[in-house]
Simulated assay, not measured.
Amino acid sequence: MSAYLRLRAVPPPALRNSAIWLERLFEGDAETVRRCRDQEHLYAGAPLHPLARNRSRTQVVLGGRPVFRTDRHKPPLLVLTAAQARQVAGFLATADFDALWDAARDDLLPRYGGVIAEPETWRAFAAAHQELRAFYVHTAECGDAVVKWLSEA
């Protein structure tokens, strides 16, 4: 089973602090951006964005305020405020993918077929990075918050 991070942009006035309400955002998720959870490894070794002092380097992928679900065995939903989404967008807009890849390469390649599969793996992660960047830049331009749901697919 693969883990996917599903993302949804939400205008801050519409945001609710209810796990049930947040889960409903993902019904019929044709518009949901999906990223493989391993994407976090790209950002784990990245320098922190200057505005994100004292934050996890994986804030881009896995960060946010948890909203716990009624079934405590399921991972919580995560919420980034509009301001946090702008910080992530700023980080992604200036991030050098090749430098991120170089730092995460040795950790990621064994999971995806080793050195022989590097070109394909690099392309997949580069495409995911571009999609994530586009999602956050658009979200920041709209002034939206972000809801994240780590799910099994």
Rank of each mutant, 00 (worst) to 15 (best):
R69N: 12
E40I: 12
P66T: 07
V115R: 09
L51H: 08
L5Y: 00
F68A: 14
A127D: 14
T70Y: 08
H41S: 05
R53V: 12
R8K: 15
F135W: 00
H73I: 03
Q39K: 12
S151T: 15
M1D: 14
L22W: 03
P119C: 04
G90A: 07
A14Q: 13
A99Y: 06
Q59L: 14
R57F: 01
A153E: 13
L132P: 01
R65T: 15
R53P: 07
E141R: 02
R53D: 09
A46C: 09
A44T: 07
A19C: 10
D96G: 02
A3C: 12
F125R: 00
G90E: 08
V147F: 02
A104V: 05
P119F: 03
D38V: 02
T70G: 14
R72K: 11
G64H: 00
Y112F: 10
L7T: 01
A46E: 04
C36I: 09
Q39W: 04
F135H: 01
Q87E: 14
V147D: 04
Q130E: 15
A145L: 05
P110T: 03
D38L: 11
E118K: 03
A82Q: 01
N54F: 11
V115M: 11
V88S: 01
Q39C: 14
V61N: 03
F97W: 01
A153W: 05
A145R: 01
R111D: 13
V67W: 00
Y4N: 15
D98L: 07
L109A: 06
R123I: 05
A83D: 10
